[in-house]
Nucleic acid binder design. Structure first.
Lengths: 190, 190
DNA sequence: GTCTATACCGAGATAGAC
DNA sequence: GTCTATCTCGGTATAGAC
């Protein structure tokens, strides 16, 4: 059991994942959380403030997840594979990237937690790739920053493609394809 | 100058690109096209039918674009680079993939043109990659179907990442990173 | 803190005149 | 074919009692 405020945030997190920001209404949040209108507008100034709180929690949660993977002491390629081949439901969408396409994301405040998550993720991946280059296991001609964009995009785009083709497996294949390229490259170098 | 019906479709295409399906209202379409409500509901049964007509046109248009690239007589890697490095506005989103995340895309009818586009694109890329394998320029261990998912996802995810970080350049880097991997791989094989 | 009542607006569509 | 008037519903929020 948690307090009303937490319930609201929790329900908003679910709905942001399922429906995004624009398509989620306060009423849906209330229904799911069991709270009343009064509580909602007592704890938050409105939909936007609640959404930001929810996205902040979600970002922290996801950052903790990838840090667990990237801070392990496996080989860099195993870490990356570990990250890329995590089980994902292609039809549901990324728990945070999901909302990036919503028109309301033009608003600066809403973008803050989103930006924070992706910045940190990119930094982590770029660092990993630079270590690989230092060890001579990735060609010097490959730019770690550029490739980190590719890695992140593959995951995010996998969700989009899965939904477009209505095939939950697309995202897993997309990630597998990238891993295959990296493994092959590392094999040929050896 | 075109007739009212075409104007409506044309405006809907723009709005679907800019705002997606759920966030686009009939009123916005009317305002942009200069048509009135009467015309709208005379030519179409409603928002959904208009959107499908618009997406159908858009799909045809985009299919023609990639066919122009893939049916040229360049080397497969040049074709792929040509496709991946096309100029794209990362902040606007894919002209058709943009709407894949909208909640309303759960409706079967709306997904038809979306699915048609992505299916054909994937088929074209897969074919290209298989030719590369036939020529021995891509390792047999690489699965063309799997890798085609990666290619498409990189583009789609590039748009998402660009919007998340609010950096129009992310998508271009993501695509460049994938090309770099493929070029490197092809170099080492030689 | 939480509830119910109320208000305002725009989405999406229909009706019937021209 | 196109126009204006009208309708219903839900999104988003405020007011004031408890």
């Amino acid at each position: 059991m948690k307090d009303t405020r937490s319930q609201l945030i929790s329900s908003m997190k679910e709905l942001l994942w399922e429906r995004g920001y624009d398509a989620t209404s306060p009423n849906q949040v209330l229904e799911r959380s069991g709270a009343g209108k009064g509580s909602f507008y007592h704890h938050f100034s409105g939909k936007q403030e609640l959404a930001i709180a929810a996205m902040d929690e979600r970002a922290n949660e996801l950052i903790a997840e990838f840090e667990l993977i990237f801070h392990s002491d496996q080989h860099w390629l195993d870490k990356l594979e570990n990250y890329l081949l995590q089980p994902r439901d292609g039809l549901k969408g990324c728990r945070i990237g999901r909302i990036a396409q919503d028109p309301s994301m033009d608003e600066l405040l809403l973008r803050v937690p989103l930006k924070r998550y992706f910045s940190q993720l990119q930094q982590a991946i770029e660092q990993l790739l630079n270590q690989a280059k230092d060890k001579g296991e990735l060609p010097e001609s490959i730019c770690a920053h550029t490739l980190s964009c590719t890695v992140i995009s593959t995951v995010q785009g996998g969700f989009v493609m899965s939904r477009a083709l209505y095939d939950p497996d697309c995202i897993n294949m997309a990630c597998q394809g990238l891993i295959d390229l990296l493994r092959t490259l590392s094999t040929l170098k050896t």
